[in-house]
Each structure stands twice: as structure tokens, then as C-alpha cells.
Design a protein around this nucleic acid. Structure first.
Lengths: 346, 346
DNA sequence: CTGTTAGCGCATTCAG
DNA sequence: CTGAATGCGCTAACAG
């Protein structure tokens, strides 16, 4: 056994500490930088020394300290991810896409949840930027001026997800919710529906639902129609709210022939209401959602809806940023599109 | 404007760089360590200098570099989190609990997804430990020997979640799935069911489902019964699989009076099958799940199931570890329990 | 192909 | 109450 390096000796005196580059280098009788190079796979290395070093690494169970590495090289393999919630299945799905995109390159997501609160988001942005991430991914465009400034001046790549109905700081990946709403209207008009009811949830925290509503109303307007009725719940979207709000809608406006829901969660609730109220979807009342969630397609009657590609949104954002670590001159927008899912409820 | 420090001058020569402690100190005409102390809220500080420094901090928009801070103090505010999947809503819920527990203390989760693969888990553990997290949270007990060794020797606190049917490295938080299965059996026997069918999914990746099955079988056995039929899908659990597998079960064993599902996803599928097949739950056939998911309780008929407290599991694990940063002498186990949800399907 | 030198930005001593 | 010196563990830059 070779003598430990000066550094190692110092540390060893105070009990068992994690192995460092220095320890490995001492054991393999090379310099620290050589071990570092071998582990990072850079520069020309003699096979014999590589073998010797790898042996030492394995024997000692050395795990490089990325904190030190990041500080020294100012190249981080963390990516900040900020989403409003984990309750809404949509965001875990985006996170899956992000994870899938990051995985192969060894980047790790550091996650923050805003609870749909811009002030929380502001703090999170600062807190995550403090880790000097390689990039930042954030859902939505509703930032405080301070948040926007910090993201702007951080210099790293910034992806704003879900939405492309606004100008991003750097990169936007998502779909046009306004267009999706408009196409919902066109589609349902084509199918012969005329008396539209809307079942929604609180917009203040969900700008995208509002955009879809606006698009839908525009489509109706362009065809010379208006909403025949609306029912909005106060809180966030949920299956339970969908049930009760469809009930409320049908009481106040019994003559609607189609109910458009703010999303699939709400729409699934609507389907459940029909089941208990003896209403046959499509024949008696059209039901239309948004998102294309699995649960909607697993219903006894497949939900008619629009598929937003959440996984793809996450993965695309990551791939785009990994592929070019510098911000382009002008903000870029990637449209991941959407598809109408015919289903059996409209 | 005061003269920049030596360090700042050096950096400034190569274009716009992020603000450092040095810059703030120079502007406030104090030493770096004073700024550091003020920002961390340690030591006695004169009000006048604090004001002066905070002014500089705000004016320059200084954000401390946690990478450097962590290296210098070897006190990290990252927590590694390893879960098998994000598709199964159960894990985002655990993650919510983890996040809720971490939030107030400013710790941030760094997330890894194993896809139920022990080798992936092994790599993730090494990769996350490289960030010198303050603690590590990992779902389940099925680790490779190497993974276990790394977690063991890392010295940081380790929480193994979901399950308490095994001895943890340090801390286990969850429920006894075996007991939950057993109680499911007792409960249904008490309600008069005798001819039990089981509808399950692939166990190889879900040891806990197997444990519940074993517990259930034990309860039947203790009462002198056996399963009247079983139907297992090859892949993971899903609503779709629940539908088709209940169908399969009823074809092969038409005389079962209750179907126990491996979890709520499967059970909801079972309820959907009943709806299309003209079977009235409870009257014609009992249906019982596991997890107590929202979707089950939002069905036209509330699903009979067992509530596992996923959010609580995540939060408890975090709180326990934050409260004591040293590992206790002997592994500790926290039972977050479960409750039978009577529901309307059994 | 390998080593030396000099930091990365901050926090921990230890002095005043 | 404040500061100077030193090093956390690693890597960039420049020798040889």
C-alpha cells in the first residue's frame, strides 16, 4: 500500500471520510489530474495507467464529488424544473418526458413546485439558480417581473413549457391552447352541435384553460353562435367538480346539446354524472374534454377530447436545449401540436 | 463606486460574469465573510453594516452560489429522491409529500426514476450521492448489494419508503402491505364474501402487490378458504388491464362473489367492466381495490378499497430525517397505517 | 502521455 | 463585532 497523499493524511486523522481523487491518485501512484481525466474520458491516456487507476477506483468505491467538479469547471449537470403542481397528472407526465430526455446524458432534475403561486415561483427560481443549473425548465409564462429578469440574466437556457401563445424568454415548447379551443369548436360544429355549454374551473391559476375557452368562443362566434350556458366551479379542476358542474349546467340550461369541459378531469366527472342521471352521452348530450388522459380512454365510453402531448413537451424541451447550450439570437417556439380524439362521447 | 476587489477585477476582464460575494463585499466596503455571515444569519452583526450590505445585495441582485457554499461547508441542501415511476400516480403523490416536507427548510429534491430496474437504481444512487445530498429517499427495499453498500457507507440518512415489511438501512416509512392484504381478507369475509377472485398485474416489479396478495391468501387460509379464481395481466397495472382481466376472471370462474384487485387502477377498470357487462357491483359481485385513489372515490359508485397515505409517507420521511441528521443506532420504522374505505362496491 | 500550478466561490477556523 | 488566512475537491491551462 502506498503512502497516502498529504491531503489524505490530513483528513484521515479525523476518522472515516469519503474517498477523494487524492486518495485514488495516491493508491494508483499517479497525479490527481490523471485520475480526473480518466474518469471524465478526456485526453490521451496510456492503457496501462488507465487500468491501474480504474482498479484503484473500483477497489476504493470512489464516487466523484460533482459539487467540487461543478465549482471547478462551472459545468453543471443539474437542470432546474419548476412546475405548478404534482396533483394534476399532466405535470408528472411532463416531468416524465423531461426525465427521459435528461437520462441519457446524466443530467438530473432539481424540482420545485409553485402551487400556482407566482411569489413561490420567484423564490424557487432564485433557489434553483443558486445551484448553477445547466438549464431551467419552467411551466407557463406567468412570471413576476423579478422572475423574468432573473431567468433572463442567468444566461443559461430557459424553456417555458405547455404554451406557445406568448413570446418566451428563450424557448417555448407546447401547443396553442387558443387554437386547440378554436378547433374544438370547429369540430363540434361540424358534427352538428349548436347549443354549446361550457363546464369550467377557476381560471385565475390556469391561463391555458382560459385560452382554450377564448378560442372556442371565437369559433362559435365565427359561426354566428354563442354559449347557451356556462357552469364554473370556484376551485381547481377535478372529477368531482365535473360531475356537479355538469349537473348545475343542465339545470340552468337544459337545452344544451354539447358540454365542453375545461379538461379531461372535469369531463370524466361529466361522464360519471351522465351514468347516474340516465343520460346517454352523444345521443342525449355531447361531452368533450381536453388532454387525452388515459382515464378518459379507459372509460366504458371513450372520451372525445383533444390529445396534448405532455411527455413530448418535456422531452422536446430537454433535447432542444441539450443540443445547443447557447441561447439563439431570437426566442424559439416549438409546437408539439395536438390531435382530436374522436372518442364515443361526442 | 468603490474599486472592485482583486478577484472581481480578474473576472471582470472577461466579460459579464455572475455577481459573487466578493463583488458585494467590495461594494459594501466590508470583507467577504461579513457578507456571508449576514446572508446566513449567523454571528453578531452591527445593524448599520447589515443595512449597507443588504442594500448592496439587493442592488446587485446577488444570488449566493450554493455549489461553492456546499463545497466549503460540506452541508448540502439537496435531497436525493429515487422512485420507480411517475406514471403510477402513487409516486407523484409521495413526491408531493416529500416536497411539502422539504419546502419550509429550503431543501430541494433531486429526482431519479428507476423504471423498476435495479441496475438503473444502482447507477442513480451513485449519480445522486455524487451531489453530496443531505439525505436520500428511495422507494422500496429491492436494491442490489452494491446499492445497499453505497447507501450504507454514504453516512447520510436514508429513508426507504412505502413498505415496512423488511428491515431498512436506516429508516423505513410506510405500511405493512402484508397486513393490509390480511385485513382486506378479514373485512370481506366479515361482509359475507366466500368465493374470492384475484385480479392482479406483474409482481416481478411490484413486491408490495405480492405482499398484499400473500396477506390476503393467509386470511382466507386462516378461515379455511382458498382463491376461487385468479387472473393476472403480464404488464403493469392499468385501468384497461383491470377491465379485461376481470372479464377473463369471470369467464374462467363465473361463480366468484368478490374480486380483489391488486390496486385501485385495476379495480376502477373492474368497475368499468361491470358497467358495460350489466353487472351491479356489490349486489352481483364485490369489487375491492387498494390505495384509495381520488378516481375511485369519484366513480358513480365509490370504490371499496384501502387508503394508503402516500402524501403522509413522503412528508413523514422528510420530517423525521430533518429532525435528526444523524442515523440512530438501530434502524427505525414508521408505520403510516392504512384505513379500510367502505365504499359502495363491496 | 503526464504533471504542476492556480484557482472555482464560499465557509471555517482563529485573531483581533 | 469584523477580518485574514486557508482549504473544500476538483479541473483548466499550461508545461514538459
Amino acid at each position: 500500500m502506498s503512502a497516502p497523499s498529504e491531503r489524505s493524511k490530513r483528513r484521515r486523522s479525523t476518522g472515516q471520510q469519503p474517498i477523494t481523487l487524492s486518495d485514488v491518485a495516491a493508491r494508483a501512484k499517479v497525479s490527481e489530474i490523471t485520475v480526473s481525466r480518466i474518469l471524465r474520458g478526456v485526453g490521451p491516456i496510456a492503457d496501462s495507467t488507465r487500468e491501474r487507476v480504474m482498479e484503484a477506483v473500483d477497489a476504493m468505491g470512489y464516487v466523484p464529488n460533482r459539487v467540487a467538479g461543478t465549482l471547478a469547471s462551472s459545468v453543471s449537470s443539474l437542470v432546474g424544473v419548476i412546475i405548478p403542481s404534482l396533483s394534476n397528472i399532466v405535470f408528472p407526465e411532463v416531468l416524465q418526458g423531461i426525465n427521459a430526455g435528461l437520462e441519457p446524458s446524466g443530467y438530473r432534475p432539481v424540482v420545485g413546485i409553485t402551487d400556482y403561486d407566482a411569489t413561490t415561483e420567484e423564490k424557487l427560481v432564485a433557489s434553483l439558480l443558486a445551484w448553477k443549473p445547466a438549464a431551467m425548465i419552467i411551466a407557463g409564462f406567468d412570471h413576476t417581473p423579478m422572475t423574468r429578469r432573473r431567468l433572463q440574466t442567468s444566461g443559461i437556457r430557459i424553456a417555458e413549457l405547455m404554451d406557445i401563445d406568448a413570446t418566451p424568454i428563450d424557448l417555448a415548447v407546447g401547443l396553442s391552447h387558443r387554437a386547440a379551443g378554436y378547433d374544438t369548436g370547429r369540430h363540434l360544429l361540424r358534427r352538428g352541435y349548436r347549443r354549446f355549454g361550457y363546464v369550467g374551473h377557476d381560471w385565475s391559476a390556469d391561463r391555458r384553460a382560459k385560452l382554450r375557452y377564448d378560442g372556442l368562443r371565437q369559433a362559435l362566434c365565427d359561426a354566428g353562435h354563442v354559449f347557451a350556458g356556462e357552469a364554473m366551479t370556484q376551485g381547481p379542476s377535478s372529477t368531482g367538480a365535473g360531475r356537479s358542474m355538469l349537473d348545475a349546467l343542465l339545470r340552468s340550461s337544459p337545452d344544451v346539446d354539447v358540454a365542453v369541459f375545461s379538461n379531461d378531469d372535469m369531463a370524466v366527472g361529466g361522464v360519471f354524472h351522465c351514468m347516474t342521471a340516465g343520460i346517454t352521452p352523444k345521443r342525449d348530450l355531447g361531452l368533450f374534454g381536453f388532454n387525452g388522459l388515459d382515464i378518459g380512454q379507459a372509460l366504458p365510453l371513450r372520451l372525445s377530447t383533444i390529445r396534448s402531448n405532455r411527455f413530448l413537451i418535456g422531452r422536446m424541451a430537454v433535447e432542444k436545449m441539450l443540443q445547443q447550450s447557447e441561447r439563439p439570437g431570437t426566442p424559439e417556439i416549438i409546437d408539439t401540436g395536438y390531435e382530436i380524439v374522436e372518442g364515443e362521447t361526442a
